[in-house]
Design a protein around this nucleic acid. Structure first.
Length: 233
DNA sequence: GACCAGGCACATC
DNA sequence: GATGTGCATGGT
């Protein structure tokens, strides 16, 4: 791991050789794709709902579900809490796994009410590590969803690891694919300054490059990150 | 029609 | 701890 001095052939990438590979990846991606403006949600509550609905699901399908919730005046804690699970499931149908996700949304609301009187703002004031552990105890919230909530809804400096992050980094020889969620996350945390804006943008950029270039080998060869493969080895 | 998409819980070994 | 399976829609 870590970056050694670049070879002469790599010196035209305008990276200084005290940068680590995670910083180089970020710089490359930002230069290529620009700001991603994540997370696309109007309120922290909407971001939380989106984080649960997007589990193993494309964002387009989630957007339809959120639109439905808004149209049904149901995008708020009280309505979701009071609504029968089957009615909620019907509204979020387009997001897939709708029965499971309806229960998960209700689980989160129960947690929010029980611990923070239904207030995202109160939840935000909780100690970060304590809150993360509590979130992981909620049925339907695993590490990625918890960290998405912490970073994108609450503005906490926690790096989100998702399928794209793993795919992009392992394709470029930065991290072994079978490393754990925590292994991946620890590498980001120890290699970068703990900065919410940086973590927000970085994860979104990894998704951007993953969506476009990590689908097939021919595209992989055109990936803007191909320059870091020899460095990462 | 197959495959994939911003995971997670649970059972089993 | 690792692996397999169910959950489900909508786009390509």
């Amino acid at each position: 791991m870590g970056l050694t001095r670049p070879s002469r052939s790599q010196e035209n990438f305008s990276f200084t050789w005290n940068m680590n590979v995670f910083e180089i990846i970020y710089k490359t991606l930002f230069k290529t794709f620009g700001p991603q403006h994540w997370w696309p949600g109007e309120t922290p509550f909407e971001v939380v709902v989106g984080a649960i609905l997007t589990q193993n699901t494309s964002w387009g399908n989630v957007e339809k579900a959120i639109k439905n919730l808004k149209a049904g005046q149901a995008l708020n804690a009280r309505r979701i809490d009071e609504m029968p699970v089957h009615a909620l499931a019907a509204l979020i149908r387009s997001a897939g796994y709708f029965n499971v996700k309806a229960k998960r949304l209700k689980s989160f609301i129960r947690f929010l009410v029980a611990n923070y009187q239904g207030s995202i703002e109160k939840m935000k004031r909780e100690d970060l590590q304590v809150l993360r552990e509590k979130l992981l105890d909620v049925n339907g919230i695993g590490p990625e969803t918890a960290d998405s909530i912490l970073l994108y809804a609450l503005g906490k400096p926690v790096f989100v690891i998702d399928a794209y992050t793993k795919r992009v980094l392992s394709r470029h020889n930065v991290v072994d694919r079978d490393k754990s969620y925590e292994d991946f996350q620890n590498l980001f945390h120890s290699s970068l300054r703990r900065d919410v804006k940086l973590f927000n943008e970085y994860h979104a950029l990894l998704v951007a490059v993953g969506k476009i270039y990590c689908r097939s080998n021919p595209l992989c060869d055109k990936c803007p990150l191909r320059v870091i493969r020899p460095i990462a080895l």
